[in-house]
Design a binder for these strands. Structure first.
Lengths: 283, 283
DNA sequence: TGACATATGGAATGAAAATTCCATATTGAC
DNA sequence: GTCAATATGGAATTTTCATTCCATATGTCA
């Protein structure tokens, strides 16, 4: 008996399981077929609900679910359920799958190339979440705000600094007055002191938040300068002192976070603002 | 007591809960704030995992999770968790649909949002070409070169400057000696004059090539400093004076080129070099 | 500084849910 | 039609997990 129900190979992901179910569906006993059909038709239910309630919905006994799972090499229903949950998570990014394919294709590639692929993958994943994370109306508000601002002050340190340096470059080319701080030491606060209510500030900071950035943003806000910020958590110190804020979470490879999403966001903001100004000027 | 912790209105969906958390986060005690931050930053984890493991990840006790839930009017953690699960279901069901909307540059969304999507797309396309464009062996050579270099000099201006400023930041964190030029005016050449054959330089420049970058790279090469470069054409002035060079073409939106591929490349190079050094030091 | 209120950690408890087990039913072979 | 093998239902068991409770710590106001 031990030979028949303890198959040596439990599927490792949902696709493998799905294939296995389809293959053996015809040769399964009645109740197990019922379970198979239910599982493939309602994978989300399997992921979330309890064995008892799933059993009720599929018109079988809880023990049948366990037997079903064991039939496919799992220890019990719970371990099968994990696959259904993993599927739900991965659904958001199909890029991991692509990465797996790449690695399978050429497993002999050097470690460095693996790192490169990892960052490419992280970039894709980050970009994927960006469009979903940004509320169109709020984005529009931010564009409006900057389009009508006299001078745009860019606040960013450390890891976020590339973002603001790109924006400073692009705004410069597009003839939008802007000043980036965080470049040299010391004088930042003096520069920021120039800002008034008719200007606007854009602050970027990701965890662990550079304390100066937060302090500077707060100071600006206190003086009536509208602050828009880009950060990675609603709990960022930037969020609380900003008139408008955006939450963008970058995916990472080996603990090093991508910058793709933030960069794309910065580009879009920059170009949108310039475009809006051009329009308004033309009227 | 019953009046304070049994708020009459438990939120009915995730958005309400989110709003409630944000509203009250400032007045919450320390551990509950911790939970709030974790919950909003990692909603998927809350949906799937068990109270104990979530508590572990958020560095609190399981009981704190329960208290947190009760604080917001739920009977216990489990009922709060239901909202997170419901959210995940709704999201996955509408995911494909939303993706389609984004991909067909739908005119329904605002112009600014169209621009954002354009840059997201450009980022994806750039990343797609990157892995294919980079020759693993050449990449490995570059990593070796920098791993054995004494000091790494980073040369980049204008649009490429964000790349080098990121690398300078990351190398700094990883304890790899490096110096970025192009930051302030004038002194660049003096700094570069410090470089010798045991150092190495990394130059980044895209069309239209900043003439100073090319000149600096050439000067370095002439003095025997090995130069690695990242550029967008085999005819780039950088290519001819570099020992190793990589050609990466960024996709663009409305004439504005993405930086995603170059960034990913820079990250991979940085991390690979640091990793190699760490290995070599360990021997 | 002391007293009170609130917050926190951690073990004890109790509930819920998965799994096992066994008696019974069904199927298929001879 | 009988026997054996397999499948099934349902109760019993065990495990897992959320919750509660209490002792201790931390902070607050007088």
């Amino acid at each position: 008996m031990a030979a028949t129900d303890t198959l040596p190979a439990p599927p490792e992901d949902f696709d493998q399981l799905r294939a296995a179910i389809l293959e053996r569906k015809a040769s399964l006993p009645k109740r197990l077929t019922q379970v198979a059909a239910y599982a493939l038709d309602n994978p989300d239910e399997i992921a979330f609900r309890t064995a008892a309630s799933i059993a009720g919905a599929a018109k079988v006994q809880p023990s049948t679910l366990v037997r079903f799972a064991q039939q496919f090499g799992f220890e019990g229903f719970s371990s099968l359920q994990l696959l259904f949950r993993a599927r739900l998570r991965q659904r958001t990014s199909s890029y991991d799958e692509r990465l797996r394919l790449i690695e399978q294709d050429s497993p002999a590639v050097s470690e460095s190339m693996g790192i490169l692929n990892g960052f490419v993958n992280a970039g894709h994943r980050s970009l994927d979440t960006l469009s979903k994370a940004v509320d169109p109306d709020v984005f529009e508000q931010a564009v409006q705000l900057f389009a009508h601002a006299e001078t745009i002050f860019l606040i960013a340190k450390r890891r976020s600094y590339p973002i603001s340096s790109y924006m400073a470059y692009a705004f410069g080319k597009l003839r939008v007055k802007c000043i980036a701080v965080g470049t040299a030491a010391g004088i930042d606060d003096d520069v920021l002191a120039l800002a008034g209510p008719r200007d606007a500030a854009f602050a970027v900071s990701f965890s662990p938040y550079a304390s100066e950035s937060a302090a500077q943003a707060r100071a600006m806000a206190a003086r009536g300068v509208p602050v828009v910020s880009l950060t990675d958590s609603a709990f960022s110190p930037l969020a609380e002192c900003s008139k408008i804020w955006f939450e963008v979470v970058e995916a990472d490879h080996a603990g090093f976070r991508s910058l793709s999403a933030s960069m794309a966001f910065a580009m879009a903001l920059t170009v949108s603002v310039a475009e809006k100004r051009r329009r308004d000027a033309g009227r």
